[in-house]
Simulated assay, not measured.
Amino acid sequence: MVEELHGRVAIVTGAGGTVGRAIARRMAEAGAEVMLADAEGDALDESCAAVRDVTDSFARFNLARPDKLGAANLIAATIDAFGRIDILVNEPRATRPGAFEELKREDFAAALDTNVTSTFMLSQAVAKRMIHQGASEEDFDGAIINVSSIAAQRTVPELIAYSVSCAALDQLTRSMAADLARHGIRVNGVALGAVMSARLRETLRERADLRAEMIKVTPLGRIGEADEAAEAALFLASHRASFITGQVISVDGGRTVLDPLASPIR
């Protein structure tokens, strides 16, 4: 096993979710020491068990509120456990369904708060720590990866709060990348589409027809696995992506390359 992240420390938020768990485990397999953070204690227990199969070099943090205090405590816990921070993965994705005319203001605000504001606050706090750390290290390579969705590029009226917040998250990714590049910190995104998660699995149980619909509009002809999203995050965190910043890579089986209007109209 090639330990691409040996000697590096990664924080993975949303680590209790299917994708967050896969990312945490994959980074542990690559040699990183990993801090797993999530608000859901039981889900976090399951993720820690999955990482424990790979390494003992991990810790957990119950991130009950992703606010300024929560970010400060998470960073302090990571430094206490591992002494440094090299990688941050933000996987906060909150889906708030609802048509525009029915969407409540608080639900719209909550989607922005979870997907954008919390990512901004934690990333800013971690970036400050990385800048301080990099000041005494030659060729410091910090990496921040924001997990987004192709909903930022595709308009689905029932997911307006989610799609708008993901679009804002993608722009935040690009803006952070431009500002932090001078400090040796790369910022990229992973936009997911038709990747199996606990949320998608539940939706597929409720809508038997949806699986066939998703496969039909996915050029690769299948639903992706969380491990495939984790591979993209690992690549962006590693030195293999040392000249890549400000990019949002779609992990979607090719869905975003299709025109939903199949007729050849010019």
Rank of each mutant, 00 (worst) to 15 (best):
I85Y: 03
T18R: 12
I144D: 06
T256H: 08
T245Q: 07
Q133A: 00
A178E: 11
V89L: 08
D113M: 04
A32W: 06
I249C: 11
R65E: 14
P219V: 08
R266S: 14
T245N: 07
D179L: 10
D139V: 07
L5I: 02
V195E: 01
I87V: 15
N146T: 08
R182F: 00
D227C: 04
D67A: 05
R96I: 13
R52L: 08
I223A: 01
R201D: 13
A161K: 06
F140D: 09
E206C: 00
A22E: 03
V9S: 03
I75D: 01
L122C: 06
G20R: 05
R211Y: 00
A181I: 14
M176E: 12
G254N: 12
E231S: 13
D67K: 06
F243C: 02
G7A: 06
E158F: 12
A208T: 12
L88I: 09
A111L: 02
V164G: 02
H132N: 09
G31E: 08
E91F: 11
I23N: 08
A28N: 09
V54W: 04
E202P: 00
S163E: 04
A151T: 11
L204C: 07
G7M: 05
A99L: 15
M121Q: 12
A15D: 03
A194L: 00
